[in-house]
Amino acid sequence: MSRRPPEPVQVVKQRRDAALRALVEGIPYVRFLNISFERHGDELTSVLGYHEALIGNPALPALHGGVTAAFLETAALIELGWQMIWEEIESGALDPASLTPETMPRMPKTIDFTIDYLRTGLPRDAYARARVNRSGRRYASVHVEAWQDNRTRPFAQGTGHFLMPLPDG
């Protein structure tokens, strides 16, 4: 009865970070908005790195509502895609080293998305975390909250419904 020793920390990190990179790196619009992702275990935080092109109203100044919408939708979609591949990455069914944007499993598609604007988006970095409330074989419902200075004072929240990709589809 010998137990397998735990994997070295570098091996675990490398595998998970490679999978996350494959998931997000190939998306031009994510790069254009300057969205990156921080990972702690399986928990993702989306980070919207501030730059001038994100401003909607220069008089305030404030983030464009469309930027906020795109940020929330991206955070929700990546969280869903991440949960979709996590098991396969961890079990070894999917090898992150062989994953490229071209060979990635198909991503879910947005059916609808509702954004609640709670406060003005300030001209600085923003963060978002998404929670998959339900993920069935065909449909998923995801809630996401975004904040800037205080985690407990979100400036926007959103809920979206997503169509899951068909197996091998």
């Binding site: 998306i27 031009p28 619009y29 919408a69 795109a70 940020f71 939708e73 991206t74 998305f113």
Partner: peptide
């Protein structure tokens, strides 16, 4: 938003 098809991201349409 999807490099395999060249379809633009829903977020840009939202904006």
């Amino acid at each position: 938003g999807d490099p395999s098809t060249g379809v633009i991201h829903g977020g840009a349409v939202s904006a």
